[in-house]
Each structure stands twice: as structure tokens, then as C-alpha cells.
């Protein structure tokens, strides 16, 4: 059995006086899809940001692809994030001043790939997610759903070992959302990647191998679906 791609051990997080996550323990194996569900404000995004190393665990441990994020400095953590993680945030955040295509190419550019190669790869992924943009189209020119497509393309362009997606289809209509989810899961799982999917949509959760249910910052249950 391969070691898990992502492990959270007794991770807690507090914003000021709000305890957003308490003692969360979970792991995602290579090739596995785990859905994190639960009502608004239950701590789903917090859990995802901790897994991504965007938030630093105040207690407990987060390990991604063999690196314990709290045990390394910011530079090393940023490196894990860049190389091993594909991140789709809840509101499809893109870098505003950068053309959409360069946003998608960014993970490869940061890794030092030649710009022409990175842009060609970006074009390929934009095509696969079904987003037609010109070379100079800016994120501000996209609709919410289109921004989500671009964010997904950016998360997939470097073939990450761990795909973290926060409500990745929330701004899309049913058919486009499903097509995007199919693409994200199929490409990541086929390459042996692990997926952590945050969603409050049952039809999305039903695509996972396992459901982890959060309530008031606590994991309430975990059930196998496959």
C-alpha cells in the first residue's frame, strides 16, 4: 500500500476566537477521491487551506507527498505547494494583472519551464476545460464560471500529485460542472494523483470514493462510497 499523498493528524485552527477546525484527522491515498462536505461555515475551506499549506496548522501535522508542512520553512512549503499541489479556491482566484493564459501557465513558469512551452501547455488545458480566450484576455473579462474553468486549468497544468478543489463547480451550470469534474477527476486519478474535493453539492460528493462530513469544525463521520 502506497503512503497517503495527504495526511492531516489532529489538526486544529482558530481565527481569533473562532475555532474553525478541531482535531481533524484524515488521509487521502494516491488515486483516491475524498469529498469534504458539511453546512456553510463548518470549516471545509479552512481544512483545504491547511492541506494546501496556505494556512499554517496551529496544532497537529499536515503532510503532503512526504513533506510535513509545519516542519519546514516558508520557502520549502511554497515549493511543495508549487510542485505537488493543484489548488482551486472557492472563488476561482486568478492573478488579476496577468492574462488568463499566463495565469494557467504560471505553475510551469514558476518551475522554470520555457515560456513558449508553458503557454502551449496552458492553451492545451484551456482547450480541454472548454474555455476560449485570446492571449491577452484578462481575468476581469471572465464570468464567474469561466474564471472557475481557468482556475481548474491552472490546477491541472503541472499534473499535481494532490488536487485540492474548493467548490470547483459552484459557478457552473450542471452540464459544464459535470464535464469539468469528469476532467479533473479522470486526469488526476489516471496519473495516480489524490483529490480532496470540498463541496456542499451531493451530486459532486457522490463522485468521491469517501465522504468526510464536517460539522462545527469537527469531523462528524467518514463513510466509504466505493
Amino acid at each position: 500500500m502506497n503512503p497517503p499523498t495527504l495526511t492531516l493528524s489532529a489538526v486544529s485552527h482558530t481565527y481569533g476566537r473562532t475555532q474553525a477546525l478541531r482535531d481533524a484527522t484524515l488521509s487521502v491515498a494516491p488515486g483516491e477521491v475524498v469529498a469534504v462536505t458539511g453546512p456553510s461555515g463548518c470549516g471545509k475551506s479552512t481544512l483545504l487551506l491547511l492541506a494546501a499549506g496556505v494556512l499554517r496548522a496551529q496544532s497537529g501535522r499536515v503532510t503532503v507527498a512526504g513533506t510535513e508542512l509545519s516542519g519546514v520553512d516558508d520557502t520549502a512549503r511554497a515549493l511543495v505547494r508549487r510542485r505537488s499541489i493543484g489548488l482551486v479556491l472557492q472563488f476561482g482566484q486568478l492573478v488579476p494583472d496577468l492574462p488568463v493564459r499566463d495565469n494557467v501557465a504560471l505553475p510551469l513558469l514558476l518551475e522554470g519551464h520555457p515560456a513558449a512551452d508553458a503557454r502551449a501547455a496552458a492553451d492545451g488545458w484551456l482547450d480541454r476545460v472548454g474555455l476560449a480566450v485570446g492571449p491577452d484576455t484578462l481575468p476581469s473579462e471572465l464570468s464567474g464560471g469561466q474564471a472557475q474553468l481557468a482556475a481548474a486549468a491552472r490546477a491541472l497544468v503541472h499534473g499535481p500529485a494532490l488536487l485540492l478543489a474548493d467548490e470547483p463547480t459552484a459557478s457552473l451550470d450542471t452540464r459544464s460542472g459535470r464535464a469539468l469534474l469528469d476532467l479533473m477527476l479522470a486526469t488526476t486519478v489516471a496519473a495516480g494523483g489524490a483529490v480532496l474535493l470540498v463541496t456542499h453539492d451531493n451530486t459532486v460528493a457522490a463522485r468521491a470514493d469517501r465522504e468526510v462530513r464536517l460539522r462545527d469544525g469537527v469531523i462528524e463521520h467518514e463513510v466509504a462510497l466505493s
Partner: peptide
Amino acid sequence: HVARQRAVHLR
């Protein structure tokens, strides 16, 4: 109950 019901429904 919620866990079991969600599991069978989602499956």
C-alpha cells in the same frame, strides 16, 4: 443514522 443514510444514498 445520518451517516448510514448519506452513505447508501451517495453510493
